[in-house]
């Protein structure tokens, strides 16, 4: 497992927080029922580096986010639905704003989805489910996410559809495959599973954590230099408009939670200072734009 270390031998550009649009919560810590071979923070049933966030911690940060004018809330892990407070956390959040939860889709319970359906119906805001899947065949997906997961994820997607949710299938491009083939394959798979107009989001891999062992880590030239920021729209970087709350404090983004330097402070107020792009994973964010939002920000206008 490769923990991101800062690059020490060159000047790194600094990115100011333009506005805290997106507040993330690492509600699942690094605990996951799966052990995907490309996970950038190496989540597993045994990884307790980060723990679950409880409802009160989330409540405190939601209250603080009002004065900061946060626009949307995101929940990730690990697997968020291993957190026993998860349904209550989403119910509470939908009273504040729109919520998106990133899940592997394999652990839903009927009662949770029924409650969440009611919570979204009672709210003016959307509840989005981003379900991770890494191949449109069992062979491709299970090679990354583990034996039997393809069928379990599909069952999870159908379960969400049955409750009126319209999940966004989030696909990591784990091989040198073209995005168009992946996209078409997933559209076809979803349609045959009753999802008439499926929503698909394709992401690049982040070459840290387990992924660095599966394929490769970053190469020496893969870093963000001051020259690369000339004329670049900083809003494409998550660090310009997001922060993430974990049980170990507030970090700059969901990708760098294992890097000590990415810890911005104990509270949201502490975390609003600029961040220096001293990590190679920042290169992927720079190359591909905002990876983590439901609708990535596009270029200047």
């Amino acid at each position: 497992m490769t923990i991101p270390l800062p690059i020490l031998d060159s000047a790194a550009p600094q990115v100011a927080l333009d506005h805290l649009d997106d507040l993330w919560f690492q509600v699942g810590g690094t605990v996951c029922n799966l052990e995907c071979s490309h996970c950038f923070i190496s989540c597993s049933p045994r990884n307790h580096t980060f723990g679950f966030l409880d409802l009160e911690t989330v409540r405190r940060h939601l209250a603080a986010s009002v004065g900061l004018g946060v626009k949307e809330y995101y929940f990730t892990g690990g697997e968020p639905f291993l957190n026993r407070d998860m349904t209550a956390i989403l119910e509470l959040t939908l009273r504040y704003g729109p919520a998106t939860v990133l899940t592997n889709g394999t652990v839903f319970k009927e009662d949770w989805l029924r409650r969440l359906r009611a919570a979204e119906d009672a709210s003016r805001y959307s509840l989005e489910f981003r379900v991770s899947m890494d191949g449109f065949t069992a062979a491709e997906n299970d090679a990354i996410r583990g034996a039997g997961t393809f069928a379990r994820i599909l069952a999870g997607v159908r379960h969400l559809l049955d409750h009126g949710f319209l999940p966004i299938l989030t696909v990591t491009q784990t091989c040198d495959d073209d995005a168009a083939r992946l996209f078409a394959g997933f559209v076809n798979l979803m349609k045959t599973n009753g999802y008439r107009k499926p929503r698909i989001k394709i992401l690049p891999t982040l070459r840290i954590g387990a992924e660095a062992d599966r394929q490769r880590g970053y190469q020496d030239h893969e870093r963000v230099t001051p020259e690369m920021m000339a004329g670049f729209d900083e809003r494409l970087l998550l660090c310009s408009h997001a922060r993430i709350v974990t049980d170990r404090g507030v970090f700059v983004c969901p990708i760098l939670v294992e890097a000590g330097e990415a810890r911005m402070g104990d509270t949201l107020a502490d975390s609003l200072r600029p961040f220096r792009l001293r990590f190679r994973a920042c290169y992927t964010c720079h190359q591909h734009g905002t990876l983590c939002a439901n609708i990535p920000t596009t270029g200047d206008s």
């Binding site: 506005h19 900061l68 004018g69 946060v70 626009k71 949307e72 729109p98 959307s126 439901n294 609708i295």
Partner: peptide
Amino acid sequence: FLWDSTTSSHFLRH
């Protein structure tokens, strides 16, 4: 894009 369902009221106030 400012949609009704993905724009919090406190963001509008900001």
